[in-house]
Each structure stands twice: as C-alpha cells, then as structure tokens.
C-alpha cells in the first residue's frame, strides 16, 4: 500500500473526531431548528408530492448513512448493500403475504435476518481487502438478485404485491395523507444518525477508524479487527434492512429489479461519497441535494429516457473522488 494512503481519509474524518467545543452552542441551536423544520414540514407543505420527495430523501439519507457506518468509519467499501435492502423488503413482505404477519413485526423481523446474512457474507469476505472486497460484494449482489428472480416462493421476477388496506397505524398504510410515512422515515433517519453519532464518540468509532486507517496496526494494538468489521457490517445491515421494509410498505410492490439491483447499491454509496464519507452529516447532505436533483431532471427531461440525473451523479462522483475526497461537507468545513 502506498504511503499517504490513509492520510487523506484521516483528514476527512479529523473534523468529526474532535468535539467542536467552540461552536457547540450554535450547533445545538442549528440542530434544533433543523429538527423543528423537519417535524413541521408536512404541516406547511400539504401536497403529497412534496411529502413523497422528502420521504425519499430521508430514506436514502438513512441508507447512505448506514452504508457510511461500514464504509466511511470502518473503511470496508461494500458495493452490494442492496442485498440487505432486499432482505428487509422481502422478509416483511413475505411474512405479511404468506403468514399474515403485521408489517411492523415484519420490519422488526427483517433486521435479524439481514444481520445474520451480513455475518454470513462478512465472515469470509472481510479477509479480502480493498478492490477484492468491493468486487466480492458486487458478485454477491448479483448472485442474490439472480436467486431472487428465480425463487418462485418470493414471487420470482413478477415480484410481490402487498395487500391494499384501510389507513391505520397498525396496518402501516396511510394513503390519504402520507404524513405518517413521513414521520416513520424521519424516525428511522434520526435513529440512524443518533447511532452514528454515538459510534463516533465511543470506543466503537475509534476502533472502526483505526481499522480503516491501518488494519495491521489496529490488530497489533489489540483491536479484534475481524470482530469489529462484523459489528460495523451488522449495524449497517440492520438499518438498511429496516429501510427496505419501510420501502416495501410504502410502495406496496417489490421485485428483484427494484429492491436488489446493483444500481441501488451504487446509489447508496454515491450519496454518501458525494456528501462526505466518514462524516455524520455527509450522507444526509448528499441525499438532500441529489435526490431532489434527480426528481428535477426527471421533470425537465421526463419520458425521454435520457438519464440526465445519472450523468450528473457520475460526473459529481468522479469530481468528488478526485478533487475533494472529503465530499461536499468537507468543502463546507474549509
């Protein structure tokens, strides 16, 4: 590994490690305003379209942040996180359609399934480093997608349609107003941010960053590297799975192409990398900018199949990777 390798990443995370004591006051006020704005949003913007857009921002920000826990803090770049999204979506959907489980229980059941799967994948694959690990996660993603397409029990390529029910908290369906969906997504995001915040400030976070900077050095000072990589993977998979279950309940239809594709795995990383990898706010900033951007281009160039959003995403991703590895958040911090 060339010298200098970890150095820039260390810079990227440096601002996060040091507790910003000087601006804590302003930071708290800003956070409070942000939270109040998020809570009040559905009461100000009453169109379902706006709510839907922000729900998607929350969902993808949460997914990107969950990926960030594994890739940003712990340095294990997974390009197959759609596997856990699909696991969550399918677990809750299959439990509901086949055995009549309550969707909330389905969401909770998806988490241990995805965590178990993450350990099965992580245990062998964490022996791989860098590119090898990244390509292995792509390969696993492709394998899982093919298996799902050919597994009739979970609907195969046709996918699964969830029953349409009357609006109620118990049924996890709120079609007329959408705002309960909004709050569920917000709660998931805040939960994920809180866990990340907690990780950053505890031994877990220091271990993760030590592993990211130099696994051998981390091992030599007594950090059980393999175990902590698995812990990062488990936390990450748990949140992504919950996001997948939420998606299934929100859209009420899922198939391998919508919940397991490589493009979803890549979107998740892309938001985090553009926003600022290894930071608490980067993934949220990335999602808040890029998801509406994609929506906007779809309106501008709708129906032409021109993929303008991907054009911008790809260009941004390369630009950020080359010129500003700390992401947009890093740009703000300067």
């Amino acid at each position: 590994m060339p010298p200098g390798e970890g150095v820039e990443v260390a810079d990227a995370g440096a601002g996060v490690v040091a507790p910003p004591s000087a601006r804590t006051g302003w930071g708290t006020i800003f956070l409070a305003i942000l939270l109040v704005a998020a809570l009040a949003f559905p009461w100000v913007f009453r169109l379902p379209y706006h709510r839907d857009l922000v729900i998607r921002v929350f969902l993808y920000a949460m997914l990107a942040q969950a990926w960030n826990i594994l890739a940003g803090y712990c340095g294990q770049i997974s390009l197959g996180h759609a596997v856990f999204f699909g696991t969550g979506a399918y677990t809750s959907a299959v439990l509901q359609t086949t055995w009549g489980w309550n969707p909330w229980l389905g969401l909770l059941a998806g988490v241990p399934v995805a965590v178990a799967l993450s350990q099965v994948i992580g245990y062998p694959c964490f022996r791989l480093r860098g590119h090898y690990f990244a390509i292995a996660t792509i390969a696993i993603g492709e394998i899982v997608q093919t298996l799902a397409i050919n597994w009739e029990f979970i609907g195969g390529a046709r996918g699964l349609t969830l029953p349409f029910q009357k609006d109620s908290l118990l049924a996890f369906q709120f079609h007329t107003s959408k705002y309960p969906y909004y709050y569920v997504a917000l709660v998931l995001l805040v939960l994920c941010l809180l866990v990340s915040w907690w990780i950053e400030r505890t031994r877990l976070g220091y271990y993760f960053r030590a592993i990211r900077e130099d696994p051998e050095a981390a091992q030599s000072v007594g950090i059980p590297v393999a175990r902590y990589k698995l812990i990062a993977m488990a936390i990450s998979a748990a949140f992504v799975s919950a996001g997948g279950s939420f998606y299934a309940q929100y859209v009420l239809y899922l198939d391998p192409d919508s919940v397991l594709p490589l493009s979803l795995s890549i979107l998740i990383c892309l938001l985090a990398v553009v926003g600022g990898v290894g930071t608490l706010w980067g993934p949220l900033v990335g999602a808040a900018l890029l998801i509406p951007l994609s929506e906007f281009t779809r309106i501008q160039f709708g129906g032409t199949g021109r993929a303008v959003d991907l054009l911008i995403y790809g260009g941004l991703l390369t630009t950020v990777a080359v010129f500003q590895p700390a992401g947009l958040v890093g740009l703000l911090r300067r």
């Binding site: 060339p2 010298p3 200098g4 390798e5 970890g6 820039e8 990443v9 990227a12 890739a71 340095g75 770049i77 860098g130 590119h131 990244a134 890549i266 990383c269 892309l270 990398v273 990898v277 199949g305 021109r306 993929a307 303008v308 959003d309 991907l310 054009l311 995403y313 790809g314 260009g315 941004l316 991703l317 390369t318 630009t319 950020v320 990777a321 080359v322 590895p325």
Partner: peptide, 25 residues
C-alpha cells in the same frame, strides 16, 4: 495515485456511470 482506496474506487466508478449515462443521453 496514492490517494485513499475510496477515491481510487469511486473515481473510475463515477466515470463509468457518467459514460453510460452519456451514451444513453
């Protein structure tokens, strides 16, 4: 070259997404 692994992976990954979208565009 010699940058973080993350930059090495996502620089060409982004280029790939860009070229594919450009072809589609």
């Amino acid at each position: 070259l010699g940058g973080p692994m993350l930059a090495q992976i996502f620089a060409t990954f982004g280029l790939g997404i860009f070229l594919r979208a450009a072809a589609q565009f």
